[in-house]
């Protein structure tokens, strides 16, 4: 039986957090099943800057091809399929991200291997690997048994804890795909996000300001928290009506319907017109001074408290050490 292979999400010179989460999980499964852990990077040159930072794998591979320099999803999937097809690992671990979505199902399709996407948990029971996938907008969990053949897992980012202090594998081995089809895809350029075009319907984390924020002067505080969490500020209607935020930040019946991974409501009462636009959010957390506020009927977690105490304390804790 083959090994556990983690596909590194290596983009623009950086390895994504999710790669380390996958490596941590692979390590844990590897120990349970007695399998070694390998990590694979695809690039067109020796990326010296990452080879030392690939985390706790037993072996590290670099798939090297002049066509695979910039982001090249289909070509990457084909090169990886060639590499993996020879090795038949037990599991191929990648993520349900913009990077992984091209590659995971692509490899599965090219090699005829099963795929489990949106995976939020991986366990071993009686030497059988069981993956849990979140489907139907997170309303149903599917538990699947990984068959006795190589299987591609695409995990939801944040499902596994990243190991502390990634250690580096001894050396990076190089593998060059032969006879790779000429590229049918080419990266023209990267387009950096503009601050102006915030789309709250696509943000994964929304920090939502309600009338409880009291005045526009307090908006910077809310924005700081959003930044610290890697999220975006949205609002209830009164905040938009007051002109503190533009209309395209309004959540609700007469605003936008959102379904972020985290909805954090700050001083939002939870009127039905507001709930209509956010009740299907995956995780709803609300901070409100009023324990009876209807937002707590839909929230998963609540804090009965003053946002002007909780928010600064939260920001303080989220700040990197030494500010």
């Amino acid at each position: 039986m083959g090994n556990l292979v983690v596909l590194a999400e290596y983009l623009r010179g950086a390895v994504a957090d999710v790669t380390f989460e996958l490596l941590g999980k692979a390590r844990e499964l590897g120990n349970l099943l007695g399998l070694s852990v390998e990590v694979v990077v695809v690039s067109d040159r020796q990326p010296d800057d990452v080879t030392g930072r690939l985390g706790p794998a037993d072996r590290a591979w670099l798939i090297l091809h002049p066509d695979l320099g910039e982001f090249q999803p289909e070509g990457m999937a084909r090169a990886l399929a060639a590499f993996l097809g020879e090795r038949r690992p037990r599991l191929v671990l990648t993520s349900t991200t913009a990077f992984g979505m091209d590659v995971a199902a692509g490899i599965g399709g090219l090699l005829g291997w099963p795929v489990v996407a949106y995976c939020s948990a991986l366990q071993v029971a009686d030497r059988t690997i069981i993956a849990t996938s979140q489907v139907y907008g997170g309303k149903v969990l599917v538990e699947v048994e990984i068959p006795d053949e190589p299987t591609v897992i695409a995990a939801l980012p944040g499902s596994f804890p990243a190991p502390v202090g990634p250690s580096a594998p001894a050396a990076v081995e190089i593998w060059e795909p032969a006879g790779l089809q000429p590229a049918r895809l080419r990266l023209r350029r990267w387009v950096e996000p503009e601050a102006a075009d915030v789309d709250i319907t696509r943000a994964e984390i929304l920090v939502v300001a309600g009338r409880g924020i009291k005045s526009a002067d307090n908006l910077p505080l809310i924005e700081e928290l959003a930044r610290a969490l890697g999220g975006v500020v949205a609002a209830s209607r009164p905040v938009v009506d007051a002109g503190w935020l533009p209309r395209n930040r309004q959540v609700g019946k007469s605003g936008l319907t959102v379904r972020p991974r985290l909805y954090l409501g700050l001083g939002v009462s939870g009127a039905p017109e507001h709930l209509e636009g956010m009740k299907d959010s995956q995780l709803i957390v609300a901070i409100n001074t009023d324990r009876k506020a209807p937002i707590f009927d839909v929230a998963h977690y609540g804090v009965v408290g003053d946002i002007f105490e909780v928010v600064p304390a939260l920001i303080e804790r989220l700040r990197p050490e030494g500010h």
Binding site: P73, A77, A98, D102, A104, A105, G106, G108, V116, A117
Partner: peptide, 22 residues
């Protein structure tokens, strides 16, 4: 909502031998 076994676009691309982008 129910493609836990992989998204259609890459699978269809692979089946047709076309390039794909998700």
């Amino acid at each position: 909502a129910e493609d836990w076994d992989g998204q259609l676009a890459p699978l269809l691309g692979a089946a047709l031998d076309y390039p794909w982008v998700e």
